[in-house]
């Protein structure tokens, strides 16, 4: 089944674009069929329902009821492999 991944940052322009590109590359490489869409963090509440996974570059403290992964590694370049593994773990479940 096609997975639904939401990538969110402050303005849905800069950091989420970087993270979303990296996640698209990762999923393509691993053969996972998924839609990757971008939103602002203040839209998560209304967009979360269809999501299998939310990756945010900002650290979201609230419980959204959907797995949330902190994706700052895609921006800073530190710990990318660990974050990629976390994403794969959630999507392969």
């Amino acid at each position: 089944m096609k997975k639904n991944v939401i990538v969110a940052c402050g303005g849905a322009v800069a950091t989420s674009t970087v993270a979303a590109e990296k996640i698209r590359e990762l999923l393509k490489r691993e053969g996972i069929d998924a839609d990757v869409s971008q939103y602002r963090v203040n839209e998560l509440e209304s967009k979360k329902d269809n999501a299998d996974l939310i990756v945010t570059t900002a650290r979201v403290t609230k419980d959204l009821g959907v797995p949330v992964i902190h994706g700052v590694a895609f921006i800073s370049g530190i710990g990318v492999e660990k974050t990629e593994q976390q994403i794969l773990d959630v999507l392969r479940k």
């Binding site: 940052c9 402050g10 950091t15 570059t57 900002a58 609230k62 921006i75 800073s76």
Partner: peptide, 12 residues
Amino acid sequence: IGLDPALLLGDS
């Protein structure tokens, strides 16, 4: 590492 202020906007 200098990063985007978007990182701050998730805080409650």
